[in-house]
Structure formats: structure tokens, C-alpha cells
Design a protein around this nucleic acid. Structure first.
Lengths: 204, 204
DNA sequence: CAGTTATTTGACCAGATGGTCAAACTGACG
DNA sequence: CGTCAGTTTGACCATCTGGTCAAATAACTG
């Protein structure tokens, strides 16, 4: 009996299709700029059918967002407090630039949301993200105290990593327009490596 | 006779009020997320009155955009090819972070537009902005050839300045949430100065 | 196959939104 | 004060949009 399982096979398939279509649409147009019809069309479903799976536009958006958040924060979580400081940070930067290249939609969705004041994410920012950043900030500061890293403002360091990497996804049109044929992702990793090498290496 | 001047006093006043109100609204909600009513209310005018000055929502948006562009590009234009390279770039960075602090609405408006693929700005990006960036790129590369700057990818350098500075305006909510009481703009200028000092100083 | 549950859809609705228009009002100028 | 260009507005319209609903269809179970 289908009743016993709370999600059926069809449900699972369609929810996945919907979330992917919604990510497409929302990341391009933002929440208000997107319509339920657009998402339905992108998912290959009728509007009422879409609303059968997610009762409101808002609920689709929230589902996409919470679906993404873990993936998005994974690179920072993976920064190992037992590792070699500069290597750990460089690895984090490298993972972040890969994510911008491979998941630009995700990056843009967050960008949209935060630019507008994060009306649907403030809660998450001030709890989950803040806790994570606080934790990693302490790690970085310990590394600095141990003389393994040049002493700089740890939070601004984290912001710098976010901004430098996500810029390539969020402002992709601009970057590509100004770089012509050259693929931004060809040189970006090396550029960032140089930058953080010079910024983080302790002065002898 | 009023007819001889193509813009009257009232027109000048109201157009200015409208553009400011529109900047407020558009920078918060993006183009599609903003309504003509919102702008009219913010400007203290009735909707038909607003549309008397700018016949469509699109025309208001374009007016705001072109009004802003020059101001926005001024700091880069001011980079003097005859100056001391590191000083010139540091001065550019300093001006940019000041602009993020003092004109966050402008920064967010551009961010909105570009994230969405710059549908109303591509033309400008690929002409006016590209020309300016091409020109300044050449200057930077000359400086590198002269040994005055560490050799790095000049376009990525420019992108880094944009992303690092505009991040504080565009993602202000996030930055403030994660920094608590501390004002981001207290430490940001020094952080950026350190970063670019280390990045740009030629290796002895 | 029959019954039951899950899925899908066309038709529809109420409110929001961009934009129009004729009429009313204002202010500068002779 | 009268005139007339310039300004303002209430009422209105067509379209878009989020969401509903009853009815039809498909899928699964026994």
C-alpha cells in the first residue's frame, strides 16, 4: 500500500525535477522576478501539478535554499584545524573557486537573496553560518598565534575568500565580457593562490 | 516663457526626487521586484504623475543606471598612469571601499543588474567599461614591465578590487550579521591595504 | 479486474501591476 | 485678471500572477 510510505517514487522524481527547475529560474531572476509558471514550464509540469508538490512559491524557494545550504558550506566545514594552516586555507580557496565554476546557479541564488537583505535567510545566517564562521575564525586566530600565518583580520580574511571566488559566478557576465575569449577559470585559481600565498605567509 | 527652456524648475526637482526614490527601491528589490507604485510613494508623487516624467518603469530604470555609471567608474578613471604604481592602486582601492560605504545603493543596483545577466547594461559593459578596463590594464602591465609591481594577471587584479570592495555593500546584511557590533568599515580599509601591499610589492 | 489512492489538468478567481486618459488644477507671464 | 503651457490626479483597463477546485486520469494493491 502506497499509504505507508510518505513519499512515493513519482513524488521523489518530481520533487527533484522541480527543485532543479526552480534553481534555474530563481537564480536567474530572484524570488520576485520568478513566476510559478516559469518554474512549471522549466520542470515540464502544469502549474497546478507543481503546486500539488509545493503548495506555494515561497515553499519552493525555501526548499531550494535549504537543499543548497549544506553543500554550500561544506568547503568551509572541511577546513581542518589539525592541518597545515596555509595549505588548509589554500585548499578552501581552491574548493570555493571550483564551486563557483561548477555551481554558479547556487552562488547567484544566494547572492540574490543576500543583496535583498536575506529576508528568507537571516535566521540561518545568524545561527548556522555564524556558528560555523565563529568556529573557523578561532582556528585561524590560533594559527596566527602559533606564527603559522601572517597576522590579519580573520573575519575579513573569510569575507575576502567568499567575495573573490563568488565574484566569478555572480558577475560572470561582466567578467566574461571583459575577458573576451579567455576563460576566467583558466587563470583565476593561480591568481588566488598567489594572492593568498603572499597575504598569509608569515614575515620572516 | 517656459516653453523656451526644455526643462522647467519643477521638472528638474521632480526628476531628481524620482531618480533618488527609484534608486532606493530598485537597489532593494531589483527591476522586476520593484513596482511603479512603490517608487511613486517613495517619491511622494502619484503614479500617473510619476509616469508623466518617465513614461515607463523601464525608462526610470535606465535613467537611474546611466545617471550612476559615471560616478561609479570615476575612481578607476582617476588612476593616474603617471603616478607611483602601488600608491595609485592603493588609492583606487581606498576610493572603492569608500564608495561601498557611502553609496551602497548604487553598488547593489549594479549587482542586481549584472547577476541577472545585465539585460539592460550589456551594451555599456562591452563598450564603455571594456574600453576603460582595457586602457587601465595596459597601464598596469606597463608598470609590471617596469618592475614597479609584482607580475600578476592584471584583469584578475581589477576584478579582485571590485569584488573585495563591493562585497561590503552588496552583502552588507551578511557581513554585519557575522561581525556583530564591529563596524566592517573600521578594519576593511587596513585589511585591503595589507592585502594589496603584499600582493603588489615586487619580490626583491 | 475492482477499488482505492495518488497524480494531473482545464477552468477559474482575486488581487497586483504597468500603463492610459480626460479632466482638473497651478503658476508664470502679459 | 485672463490665458495657456505645464502639472497633477481619480478612475479606469488589460494583463499577469499566485493560488484554488472539481473532475479526470494513472498507478498500485488485493
Amino acid at each position: 500500500m502506497a499509504k505507508s510510505q510518505n513519499t512515493t517514487r513519482i513524488q521523489q522524481r518530481n520533487r527533484a525535477i522541480i527543485l532543479d527547475a526552480a534553481l534555474d529560474v530563481f537564480s536567474q531572476n530572484g524570488f520576485r522576478g520568478s513566476t510559478v509558471d516559469q518554474i512549471a514550464k522549466a520542470a515540464g509540469l502544469s502549474k497546478p501539478n507543481l503546486l500539488y508538490y509545493y503548495p506555494t512559491k515561497e515553499s519552493i524557494f525555501k526548499a531550494v535554499l535549504s537543499d543548497l545550504l549544506d553543500t554550500w558550506l561544506d568547503p568551509l566545514r572541511a577546513m581542518d584545524h589539525d592541518g597545515e594552516p596555509i595549505e588548509e586555507i589554500q585548499a578552501y580557496v581552491a574548493r570555493k573557486i571550483e564551486m563557483s565554476r561548477d555551481f554558479p546557479r547556487e552562488s547567484r541564488l544566494f547572492a540574490h537573496e543576500i543583496i535583498q537583505g536575506a529576508p528568507r535567510m537571516l535566521e540561518t545566517l545568524s545561527t548556522e553560518l555564524k556558528d560555523l564562521v565563529d568556529e573557523k575564525t578561532l582556528v585561524i586566530e590560533r594559527w596566527m598565534n602559533e606564527g603559522k600565518l601572517n597576522r590579519i583580520h580573520s573575519r575579513h580574511l573569510i569575507f575576502s575568500i567568499w567575495s573573490l571566488t563568488q565574484h566569478y559566478a555572480d558577475f560572470e557576465v561582466q567578467v566574461r565580457t571583459l575577458m573576451g575569449d579567455e576563460d576566467p577559470y583558466d587563470a583565476a585559481p593561480a591568481f588566488l593562490e598567489t594572492l593568498y600565498h603572499r597575504l598569509l605567509t608569515p614575515t620572516g
